[in-house]
């Protein structure tokens, strides 16, 4: 085992997951490739969505990959940061909106 849970070099080894389960890995990577192709959304738009989601799921590999990819596809630093804020707002909002549930419960049991 390495001394760290995350190693930047491991990103390039993503495909190695097929060593333990080839069929599922092949299906996943085929699906993955299909998802990021030009479609009703452009490959560039998908890259920015992926960047925001990468932050929301706090995946360092994905942040590494899609920070590069989004910048390479032409997004500016400020556009990329706005995308991160969108992820942040949704994540923060997801926490805060549960405050309503808390209020409901308190109102239910309080005098």
């Amino acid at each position: 085992m390495s001394n760290h849970y995350y190693n930047a070099e491991d990103l390039a080894k993503f495909g190695n997951v097929a060593e333990y389960q080839k069929e599922m890995a092949d299906k996943f990577f085929s699906y993955y490739g299909e998802v990021f192709k030009e479609g009703h959304l452009t490959a560039k738009e998908k890259s920015l969505i992926a960047l925001a989601v990468a932050h929301a799921v706090q995946c360092p590999y994905c942040i590494d990959a899609y920070s590069s990819d989004a910048f390479e596809k032409g997004y500016s630093e400020s556009q990329m940061m706005e995308a991160v804020h969108v992820a942040s707002a949704i994540k923060g909002g997801a926490v805060l909106v549960h405050g309503v549930q808390m209020m409901n419960k308190v109102k239910e049991i309080g005098m």
Partner: peptide
């Protein structure tokens, strides 16, 4: 040509944009 240390994106999609 890229303004940084990376390869250019797909030419056709970039041309359209």
């Amino acid at each position: 040509n890229p303004a940084g240390a990376f390869l250019p994106p797909a030419q056709l999609a970039l041309e359209k944009e």
